[in-house]
Design a protein around this nucleic acid. Sequence first.
RNA 1: CGGGAUGUAGCGCAGUCCGGCAGCGCACUUCGUUCGGGACGAAGGGGUCGAAAGUUCAAAUCUUUUCAUCCCGACCA
Length: 476
Amino acid sequence: MSKGVTSQSKDYAKWYTDVVQKAELADYAPVKGCMIIRPYGYALWENIKSNLDKMFKDTGHVNAYFPLLIPEEFIKREAEHVEGFAPEVAVVTHAGGKKLEKPYVLRPTSETIIWSAYKKWINSYRDLPLLINQWANVIRWEMRTRLFLRTTEFLWQEGHTAHETAEEAKAEAIKMINVYKKLAEEYLAMPVYVGTKTENEKFPGAVETYSIEALVGDKKALQSGTSHYLGQNFAKAFDVKFQNKSNEQEYVYASSWGVSTRLVGGIIMTHGDDKGLILPPKIAPHQIVIIPIYRDDSDKNKVMNLWKKIETTLKEKNIRFKFDNREELTPGFKFNEWEMKGVPVRVEIGPRDADRNGVVTVRRDNREKKFPSLEEFLENITNLLDTIQKDMFSKQLKFREENTFDITNYDELKEVVEKGGYARTFWAGDSELEDKIKDETKATIRCELFEKTKESGKCFYTGKDSEVQVIISKAY
RNA sequence: CGGGAUGUAGCGCAGUCCGGCAGCGCACUUCGUUCGGGACGAAGGGGUCGAAAGUUCAAAUCUUUUCAUCCCGACCA
């Protein structure tokens, strides 16, 4: 691994791609816009995935798998859906050495193929709710791509639920966006705003879209998860009816929701610094890294004896650790390498520590160095990881608060867009006005906030009274 | 698809203007000394100079064509 990365202040975009590659999260693939997720990056995704999957199970969802290939005709059934996705779907036209009579699209999302199956599975209100999730890859042909943030192929999960009533389906969508908020805040240490997308920004085919919006290191918004109340749009497109309790045929109400490998990009940009990644302990592939230091065999024996005492306890405490005993590298090199990879705690054990029966610990997030006794260390390590997790969240929450500005007019919006961060204000404009603002400032309404700072106020642009409070920012 | 740039060892680059043995740094291999913040020495290995055609005694270098990638815009989770 070569030295260092481009500094954030010099070139944030370059810093980002440097970190992704030098921390060995991902590499470029031979296909434009695609990436190879390397073992360290995949381990990170697996940790996100396993925590989230548990939350899905806890909320009554089950996993299934639907095909990658979707009959092209399916995508076209829902008018808004086809219009929204047409530019970015890849189509398979040839197979088996022949041109296909009916082409397939590579799924950009699975609503259509899933609802074609739901038609077969749903007959009565007794079949509802149907709460299915799938972990899958999807393909969206984007014009411009960036590792993790926007790739042609990406990994995600998509939940697709079917319900008896509009209220229930909508409640499901809101429940799941809050699951995402919990994931982001408690596991990824990323504070997020939660709200409703405007008509301009919502998912094609949805009645309403909800999102979580993070604020990353260069003060731009990152949409990190979405959840949709689909109404009866897909049920109508695929003719999915059920017999309700009054013995009538009725279209089913739906929700869908997803988060993707984009979250990995969010973690990198939320926490990283000029030394590389900083990972939250709950999802870090290695929560601590232990680096032995010795020069001769007698030192080595002492250090290895110390390590044996540590290893057993770490296993008992279920801590994910890495013992880096590579002989050919100096400790200094390893310090830098594991800092690049964002391991939350570094533990140094050398002859001096062995002599006093202690260790040296260094936190990645604030670089705090301590010299605890072995006993203190083993007793406090779990607490230390918890503390780091909380401190990382607090730091980012403070950063977000410092970069959220309440505005009252258009000039103030332009100022906020100029310096970065969120502009928070009331909004009474329409779709056209939103487009105009986007054209003029490059900023968009990220969402209409669920949690408003006050009940109502005046729209910053039209001056009309409004009960809709929004955040506006440039976004990834 | 428009505007800009770049393709030479795994990575980063020099060499191209003015044609003449394909180089440098890092990484890699072996041995020895090192090891508490990116160690040092010695000896090695690694190339279809993006691709094709042309000019020439001779092409990384000149000409033509072509492909790819990156950055800036329009699209997007």
